[in-house]
Design a protein around this nucleic acid. Structure first.
Length: 596
RNA sequence: GGUCUCGUAGCUCAGUUGGAUAGAGCAACAGCCUUCUAAGCUGUGGGUCGCAGGUUCGAAUCCUGCCGGGAUCACCA
């Protein structure tokens, strides 16, 4: 049951009884009491002064007195300025702890109004391997999907692979020219990296051609348009669109290499999808919609035949929807895919996990769908996340500063390995378990590092300083978890069983109370994380919980505590903290080892 | 230039959507392992919450202006 809700109701009763007026719901502000003050929940009385017509202290005291007598769980209260701090009895909290033991999925919500939510994330191009930016995208999408499920929603994870276009042709052309019939096996290279190399190769050779033309006196702009390589690539794209057998066959082959490479990366990263779309199948969608819009008069055709949307009434410019040759642009396909998904899945909400560089695109997308008369346009949500920047600024592939996803993950695991070795933590472990633990820790550090930051914000990653393993980090939380598991194992070895229930009258310390209150918060935290599409909310909460637990662990003996009721309580408390740490970390897509 | 967005300790980030004395970690310094895992715990120093106004009982949080960073405004995707 929701305590804050019932407390609010009681406050309404109190105000009505004492001052003879029913207060508005908004004026009842019940919140958790801040750490440095005495109490569990705080009523802010300032908004009630209009009704009470008395000074803050007096109002708070009068309400406090009423609540103390009418609400059994309330033990005492104190008043500081306009803040009424209410303390609940310890046994109330201990009973609450007991109640969490039997709940299988504590924290998860049954939803009276579950939604079907489609979430698109990852959306890679098949011309180069995944990098740090994709890692943030994938981790966010995967985690947000998990979080939405805790709120009782049905979630479908989809990936839209961008497997066509001029950029793909560039890699293909470079392979034809300089590839020497190589393939991932011959080259001993992951397919996505191999194809990425050819993409780079194209760019290098293209630049040489451009420079040569410029030296002959051509303007740079002209040179870029007329370099033989770019003309060849464009020719290849035309052949692709005409389904030229040779081009298609090469395209399929190289795409396969890339996708196999991606699968390895996704697998290592621990993310997956319910459905994968390919842009080569969907790029023609949307044209119909645009033509319909043209008929309805919401779009307009210019003399050269191109179709536009006039967005000046929205304070925006005109937007191109069909080229003068009748072909689609990015926006056209996105209109199409949105429509297709909405009808295919009958989804209530469509979420797109896409970087904030595309804010404008999605703003326009929603406006266009509304103009076309689709009421579900407002159910499109662009989960816009900030860029991952290096200390010197944006990652630039031309300057070779792109942080490769596979390389980074491997480095993290290596760091975890050397760290473990230095600390002597895994000496004597079986090789396989050791490797699993190292991988769990290394990836845990990386994932936590990325997810603990508010998705909306840009974040900085410094490759020179490796990601920390101490402090507010994934390994710290994992470590706290293994301490608990080790404790439970030791208890079992000693023949001590962990009780399902402890005596609510047992004496507990402030730190223990604090831990129970944190556990109590977990369901709200999940709801908040879902409402904000923010794994960071959970990450920071789990960190708090682990930190509090370590403090408790440090100065409360558990197995060596002589009083058995206290020992039992602490064991149960530890176990439940462990359950929540694991649950929270799993929502982030982070594993927790049993020992480390 | 228009639009959007961010600015909190030396660095990386929190800050419960307007509440009390703005918090963590890293880095620095000083302590704690014969006791349940020291990837831990404790302490010290470190702040004009970019600046200036406004709104009100109360502002890091909301509004306006300015300063600074980023994104975007393509017949690219």
């Amino acid at each position: 049951m929701d305590i804050e809700k019932t407390l609010k109701d009681k406050v309404i009763d109190a105000v009505q009884k004492i001052y003879g007026q029913i207060p508005e719901d908004k004026t009842i502000q019940v919140q958790r009491t801040r750490k440095d003050f005495d109490g569990d929940f705080t009523l802010v009385v300032f908004p009630l002064l209009r009704i009470s017509k008395k000074p803050p202290e007096q109002t708070a005291n009068e309400i406090g007195e009423y609540l103390k007598h009418k609400v059994e769980a309330i033990n005492d209260y104190n008043v500081i300025k306009g803040f009424l701090n209410l303390s609940f009895q310890d046994d109330f909290w201990i009973s609450f702890l007991n109640s969490t033991v039997t709940k299988k999925d504590f924290g998860k919500r049954k939803n009276a109004n579950p939604q079907k939510i489609l979430i698109e994330y990852s959306s890679p191009n098949t011309n180069k391997p995944l990098h740090l930016g994709h890692i943030r995208n994938n981790l966010l999408g995967y985690s947000v999907a998990n979080i939405l499920k805790t709120q009782g929603h049905e979630v479908v994870k989809v990936n839209l692979v961008n497997d066509r276009g001029i950029h793909i042709c560039k890699s293909m052309l470079a392979w034809q020219k300089w590839g020497d019939q190589t393939d991932p096996e011959k080259a001993h290279k992951k397919g996505d990296h191999l194809v990425g190399d050819f993409y780079v190769k194209f760019d290098q050779e293209y630049k040489k051609e451009v420079n040569a033309l410029v030296e002959k006196g051509m303007s740079e702009e002209e040179a870029k348009k007329n370099a033989p390589l770019i003309l060849e690539a464009q020719e290849m794209l035309r052949k692709w669109e005409a389904r030229d057998p040779e081009v298609i066959s090469l395209w399929k082959e190289m795409n396969r290499w890339v996708l196999e490479g991606f699968d390895v990366t996704y697998n290592n990263l621990g993310v997956d999808f319910d459905k994968v779309y390919f842009e080569s199948d969907t790029y023609k969608l949307g044209k119909e919609l645009v033509l319909q819009g043209l008929e309805k008069g919401v779009f307009l055709k210019k003399d050269d035949g191109s179709v536009w949307a006039d967005l000046s009434d929205e304070g925006l410019d005109e937007k191109l929807l069909l080229r003068s040759d009748g072909t689609s642009v990015y926006m056209t396909q996105d209109l199409g895919t949105a429509h297709q998904r909405y009808t295919d899945f009958n989804a209530d909400d469509l979420i797109y996990v896409v970087g904030n560089e595309q804010n404008y695109h999605f703003q326009v997308l929603r406006i266009l769908l509304s103009k076309l008369g689709f009421s579900w346009a407002e159910h499109i949500y662009h989960l816009s996340y900030g860029m991952v920047e290096l200390p010197e600024g944006k990652m630039k592939s031309r300057e070779g500063t792109v942080v490769d996803a596979d390389v980074l993950m491997e480095e993290m695991v290596q760091t975890a390995a050397s760290m473990s070795k230095e600390l002597g933590k895994l000496d004597g472990f079986e090789k396989e378990e050791k490797n699993n633990i190292i991988k769990t820790i290394g990836l845990g550090a990386l994932k936590y590092f990325i997810l603990k930051v508010d998705p909306k914000k840009n974040m900085t990653f410094n490759p020179k300083e490796s990601i920390d393993f101490n402090g507010n980090t994934g390994p710290f939380i994992q470590y706290s978890y293994t301490r608990i598991q080790s404790l439970i194992k030791k208890a079992k070895d000693k023949g001590i069983s962990i009780p399902e229930n402890v005596d609510p009258k047992v004496n507990i310390s402030p730190k223990e109370l604090q831990l129970i209150k944190l556990i109590h918060q977990y369901p709200e935290i999940l709801t908040e994380a879902a409402a904000n599409f923010s794994p960071a909310v959970i990450a920071n909460y789990v960190y708090d919980l682990a930190k509090e637990y370590n403090q408790f662990y440090h100065d409360h003996p558990i197995l060596s505590e002589e009083k058995t009721d206290i020992s039992s309580f602490r064991l149960l408390l530890s176990k439940q903290v462990g359950v929540i740490i694991r649950s929270g970390m799993n929502l982030l897509g982070i594993d927790v080892p049993e020992r480390m």
